[in-house]
Every structure is written in structure tokens, then in C-alpha cells.
Design a protein around this nucleic acid. Structure first.
Lengths: 128, 128
DNA sequence: CTGTATCCAGGTTGATACTG
DNA sequence: CAGTATCAACCTGGATACAG
């Protein structure tokens, strides 16, 4: 799993530490402010644009659309348009998206659970 | 684990979907471009400033220092200064930092492993 | 409803120079 | 070595208006 080709630079292929590696681009995409929340929201099932907008507090239409397009281009999201009037667009996780989201939600839930301890620690350091 | 207090807004306490929740701040910190890489780098052991700078491709001194200060304030990093000349500053993960990093590296490694498939999928969509 | 286009303010980043 | 200060450039992101 960690046995990989070593280049002259001393970095491994697929290494996120390499600023020229494509995986850095993907990493930036999925760890972007809104992408994390979009993926987390879709984890429980497909959602429409407006539902995502309502679920994710503080997101603008522009940022949501932009994030959705990026994630779709990366192959993490499927976009399905119902030819009705008005149109209904539903987003869902692809298989890759679902795998990715498992890792992300693990992170998100850990933060949610540990948040009280984190804040307490911060307050203690500020106080001392 | 998922049983939490429901507020009038319909959001759960500690919910990252709430734009006013402190956990959103922490989430933004740890998913920021450089924080992910700093934490991943420190996973294998303590490192000094210059070593981090070398390891993480493309990071500037300013951004590295800024990221380190944020993570330290959040309680994920310890900063130890050796009173020598020139000074040597070593960074290491706290217990929280180590837990957090486990989740992050899971994500990072998944991306590294899946990268070929992701790129192939992207190429296929572009071509069609 | 689900976007896209445009404009613009503000924050983030990087280069550079400087300090302990 | 390990930063901090400053400044300009870039990009992000929000508001608004408009389109399919």
C-alpha cells in the first residue's frame, strides 16, 4: 500500500506532499469549505439543489453551484435533470463519492464529538 | 452518538451544517490547504520548522507559520523551543492532533490510491 | 426551480525584506 | 534557524440581475 515509485525529487508518486501532484488538486477540492458539507449532506441520500441550499447553512447559490460542478467533474457526484417545468435537478453520490464521504464524515463526526474538549482546551490556554 | 439536542432551528448542536457552530470553524481550520499537509507530515513524528517546509511542497514561510499557529491554538499541535543559537523549534501532534490526523490520513491515502481511477474517469467524461 | 454572468469588496497568498 | 512585517496581486465569495 505504501510501496511506491520514488522519483529523483525524493517524493513518491501520488504523494500529496508534492505540489505538482494531481492528488493535491483533488485534495483541495474535497477539503474546500463547501465540498465537505455537500458530500456530508448527500451521504444520507440524493438531494435537490434547493434542498442542499437549505441544509447547508450560509452557502450562496454561486458557491453551491460551483462546488457541485467541481465535485461532478471529479466524478464524486451524479447530476440528474428531470425534464419538467420547472426543472428538477437531483444530485447523488457516485461510488467514489460514497467512499470518499465515508472518510470525510468520520472526520466531521470526530470534530462534532470532540468539540467541547477542544473549546475547553482553548479556553484553558487563553486563560493561563 | 447521533442523539443530540434539537434546537428551534431544526439543527443539532455541534452540527457542522450550522454556519454559526464553532465546529465549522475547526473544520475550516483542519481542512485548509496547508493544515491537512502539516498534520499528515507530523504523523510519523515531531518535525522542525525547516523540515516541515522542505517536506510540504510549495508552502511559504508565512503560510506555514500561520497554519502552525492556528493548529497550535486549536490544541492539535505542541510547539517546543530549544533555547539554543540558532533556536530550534520542534512541532509535534498532541493527543487530539493525533486522533484528528488518523481521520485525515485515511482520507489522504484513499485519494492517493484512487487517484488513477479518478483521473481515468475524468478523462473518459471529457472525451465523450 | 436551477442555474449563469457580471461586478466588486475583502480576504488570502506569495515575494521580499528584515529581526532575534 | 525561525520567524515577523509589509505590500501588491490574486482569488474567493457575495450580491445582483438575468436566462432556460
Amino acid at each position: 500500500m505504501s510501496a511506491q515509485v520514488v522519483e529523483s525529487s525524493g517524493r513518491r508518486k501520488g504523494d500529496v506532499f508534492d505540489s505538482n501532484c494531481p492528488s493535491r488538486t483533488v485534495l483541495d477540492h474535497v477539503t474546500s469549505k463547501w465540498a465537505v458539507l455537500v458530500l456530508a449532506a448527500l451521504r444520507t441520500g440524493p438531494m435537490r439543489f434547493s434542498a442542499l441550499r437549505r441544509t447547508i447553512g450560509g452557502v450562496s447559490e454561486k458557491m453551491l453551484a460551483q462546488t457541485l460542478r467541481t465535485l461532478e467533474a471529479d466524478g464524486f457526484l451524479d447530476r440528474e435533470v428531470a425534464p419538467t417545468t420547472p426543472p428538477q435537478v437531483t444530485y447523488s453520490l457516485t461510488q467514489y463519492g460514497a467512499e470518499l464521504t465515508e472518510h470525510l464524515t468520520g472526520l466531521v463526526e470526530w470534530i462534532a464529538v470532540r468539540m467541547p474538549d477542544i473549546e475547553a482546551g482553548r479556553a484553558a490556554r487563553t486563560g493561563s
